[in-house]
């Protein structure tokens, strides 16, 4: 469903993505990991063209995201995105955060948008927080709202950019629980994360990136039991040591 084909990207003289390719099937959950600065966040932001690529192609369900003239807002509306620092709109209440895209982009009526928003807030366990501003919520709650905001657009796939790395440890599980549930329902997901427990539980495949390259794509079991490259071994030993 998502086909990343040999993309390259530069930040001035820094080659941040080097010939990356990856295919994600419908309903598949893929975890992308690697040391910091390896380009994994950039890769995931290329999928909905928040970061433009310099060469290569990305196709999402027959739509070429990287082609000139593609209506990017329509593509982006179909791919949910969850950010490291939540990025809720601070001047809108929780429920308004969930309604904005539905009304402005999908042209739903206020009533329909509100109904959808309420049911999603209920689903992430935050129905009672609807009228609050994001700043009144804990980090874990904000991230659950952010997931609900993405789901409100009825996405065909979800991208997560280190969704738990800005959270206090005791809040990580409440966010992961929502993500696990989503995975079980068959959502197509690309998740940049260091949560290897989550990867083991729900990921079908793991992508290991280093220095802008996709070094390894392996079935989850294989990756954890017997990683191919030395860099992946080293990475795993560091991240699993504690």
């Amino acid at each position: 469903m998502i086909k990343i084909d040999n993309i390259d990207k530069w930040y001035d003289d820094f080659h941040v993505l080097k010939g990356c390719s990856l295919e994600v099937e419908r309903g598949e959950v893929i975890v992308i990991c690697g040391p910091s600065g390896s380009g994994k966040s950039t890769l995931i932001k290329c999928v909905n063209a928040l970061e433009p690529v310099d060469s290569g192609r990305i196709v999402v369900e027959e739509t070429d995201v990287t082609a000139r003239g593609t209506k990017l807002p329509l593509v982006r509306a179909r791919i949910g995105m969850v950010f490291q620092h939540f990025e809720l709109f601070p001047h809108k209440t929780v429920i308004e955060n969930l309604m904005m895209g539905q009304i402005k982009v999908l042209k739903r009526s206020r009533e329909a948008a509100r109904e959808k928003a309420e049911s999603l807030l209920k689903r992430v366990g935050l129905a009672d927080q609807a009228q609050k501003y994001p700043s009144a919520l804990s980090g874990g709650q904000q991230q659950r709202v952010a997931i609900a905001r993405a789901l409100a657009m009825d996405p065909i796939a979800m991208c997560f950019d280190e969704p738990t790395s800005a959270l206090d440890p005791e809040m990580i599980s409440e966010v992961l629980d929502v993500m696990v549930e989503l995975a079980k329902e068959g959502m197509t997901m690309m998740v940049v994360t260091h949560e290897m427990g989550f990867a083991r539980r729900v990921a079908r495949r793991v992508v290991f990136m280093d220095q802008g390259e996709v070094k390894e794509i392996a079935d989850t079991d294989t990756f954890f039991r017997n990683p191919e490259t030395d860099r992946a071994k080293e990475f795993l030993s560091k991240i699993l040591a504690h």
Binding site: R76, G101, L106, A150
Partner: peptide, 12 residues
């Protein structure tokens, strides 16, 4: 990323 968040839900 807050700017990205607006774009990501499909705002022009």
């Amino acid at each position: 990323d807050l700017v990205n968040a607006g774009l990501a839900i499909g705002l022009t």
